[in-house]
Design a protein around this nucleic acid. Structure first.
Lengths: 375, 375
DNA sequence: TTGAAAGCGCTAACAT
DNA sequence: ATGTTAGCGCTTTCAA
């Protein structure tokens, strides 16, 4: 009973005020860094805060400020029509032991969506970038998935209710109604990647075409004569831009024809595309895959068809995720500084929240070519 | 001015009460599903809620209930001494373009920690499992990383301040002071994986030794004569348990000697370990790697040494992450139903929060062997 | 520059 | 079964 510091109810502004011999209002001002407070008093308050171990009650603050002091990080991206989603892969029998209701709660589409998300290191990089950049500000993101129309609506209404002050959204590479929904609802949001349709919304993006150009030039330098490409989903801006940039560069160098097969950014889709390209163009000697996962798939298929990488066929990926360095051979790829870009999203959103009048902006990063062994 | 439904301040309990012709308290009761409310009135209130588009203000509710209605999902796990962390890998020059302050804000250790986290699909699976299981309950987790002592302290105090009602913690496979800190602070938490030291805390785990047994039996069945293993970090329970289970089974079958090299669960560490095992035991014909990432690394090294998998050497992994199926050859592995287990963590925590008197419990899942081509 | 006081929207006694 | 009322801890006019 000597130290009544512990386990007592959390100290309030009132307690600090009493300890410092001032009013609640003054303490509040000091805590919130408002000017016009006598330095001496300021110091006294600080002491009292330290002595009492005071820490503001967020709920109380939110109630009056009408801000949540929290932001959402939503991984979105199913097509407008969720029926397009692939069915969950048939795998070995389910294990016993637990919450089977899980399957009922999670609507079909969502399963493959989240599987895709956890399979692509890209999302992990965005998430870590955001979390790390938010941490110094004492904030943590609420993580949400919007893989189905229903989930999307829930996310929007959750945010509308003021549970978060804004949203960071990273689309799973497909046309996505979420950005529009958010802005229409008057909510602050920042995107990773430019929106499909022109929406008045801030975003962070990579100069995709420049990246594709880098890849094309590298392949050309190596003297590749028969170059092909595995694209991303063409209904998404990333897919389009990488293809366009690649083709333009090649065209300018006198190669107007570039065989292309569309992939879905998964390793498997890369394998399928590579097999097809190989069948149609047995003489190919250079491949640009629109992301690393597909490039890895391409390498596997090439090897299985007896082609050596890079001796027979040069391969270049995109992203520079961990898989690129771990691949055999290590993948030459176009690096996208995902973590930094995610950090920029945070800054953009926080700025916007601080001054809502700020205009919508976008920041574009430049890609770099990371040369390893595959090309 | 006709429809004043929109853009007016959010409707409050008061508004609903007025619309329904009852008191605030009654509306509150209905909204919160408290008994003792006349069915007719209940219906009237519901109508009013729908008509006004009312939705509770969380801040106000939290202020009085003293619950945040939010939970934390913390990915933890640096060793007690953060200095142990590896330096960030030296890679190609940094790109221009942005927030360089990021490096100053993020202390050294954290970089490699988060890199490791985003590289292992395991974490992604936990996260998606949690998010998907929480969604039907209208909740979203606040995501935090505790890769350094500082980050860890911030996480603990954030939770202590009542910003979340409890925490789900998944340790990055190493001894971790976080569980103790949390319980000592009287906070509700549930772990993924049993704690290193016996702490009175609920957790969800896999029957690790059974999983290792499955792998051992498979290798034996295939007629492997010289079996080795690449373990996980031995200071972590997972690492220990998988090794112990593996050795015990083999010993019972008359193979007391099992060469083992310790890995760190990364692909690269798997490669290094495999190379060493190959050098020391050129006659090996069966490998059990304590996770899929290391198994993939092992496959690479084996191939580079001219060994065919599975013809010359059989390889078995653990986890059944996406990489296992994508590997060449597809990996035979011990499946851990990570998403389900993450869902179980959610249930455990939510139960605990609902009835704090509930005893600490643990639920153990059974692993299954997924046979593919590598063994 | 500081203090007094009025709520923010909600829940939970308590009274009816 | 329903209503009345007293705050939860904080910010923010408004006076002084």
């Amino acid at each position: 009973m000597t130290e009544d510091v512990r386990s007592a109810a959390a100290p309030t502004l009132e307690d600090v005020a009493r300890a410092a011999g001032v009013s609640r209002a003054t303490v509040s001002r000091v805590v919130n860094g408002v000017r016009n407070v006598d330095p001496a008093i300021q110091e006294a308050v600080r002491q009292a805060v330290a002595a009492t171990g005071y820490t503001p009650n967020r709920a109380a603050r939110s109630l009056v400020t009408r801000r949540a002091d929290a932001i959402a990080l939503v991984v979105s991206g199913a097509a407008a029509d969720d029926a397009i989603e692939e069915p969950a892969p048939a795998s070995a029998g389910r294990d016993a032991g637990g919450a089977d209701e899980d399957d009922e709660e999670t609507d079909g589409g969502s399963v493959s969506f989240t599987a895709r998300v956890s399979a692509d290191p890209f999302f992990g990089r965005v998430v870590t970038g955001v979390v790390n950049h938010l941490r110094p500000r004492g904030m943590y993101p609420m993580l949400m998935f919007a893989g189905t129309a229903r989930a999307r609506d829930e996310v929007v209404s959750y945010i509308r209710q003021g549970n978060t002050d804004g949203a960071l959204v990273v689309s799973a590479h497909a046309e996505d109604p979420l950005p529009s929904l958010l802005t229409e609802a008057g909510l602050s949001a920042v995107l990773y990647g430019r929106p499909t349709r022109p929406v008045r919304i801030s975003y962070v993006d990579l100069a995709q075409r420049d990246g594709a150009r880098l890849a094309a030039e590298r392949l050309l330098e190596r003297g590749c004569r028969r170059i092909v490409t595995i694209t991303g989903p063409l209904e998404a801006p990333v897919g389009q831009d990488r293809l366009t940039g690649f083709r333009e560069t090649l065209a300018r160098r006198g190669r107007p024809e570039v065989p292309a097969v569309e992939g879905r950014f998964s390793q498997e889709s890369g394998e399928v595309a590579m097999a097809r390209l190989l069948a149609e163009h047995p003489d190919l000697d250079g491949v640009f895959a629109a992301n690393d996962l597909m490039a890895v798939g391409a390498c596997h298929v090439l090897r299985e068809h007896g082609r050596r990488v890079p001796e027979d066929v040069a391969v270049i990926g995109f992203d520079d995720n961990g898989v690129a360095a771990a691949c055999r051979p290590p993948l030459t790829t176009v690096r996208q500084p995902v973590e930094e870009m995610a950090g920029a999203m945070v800054d953009l959103l926080l700025d916007r929240l601080a001054r809502p009048t700020l205009p919508v902006t976008s920041v574009i990063y430049e890609p770099t070519l990371v040369v390893r062994d595959s090309a």
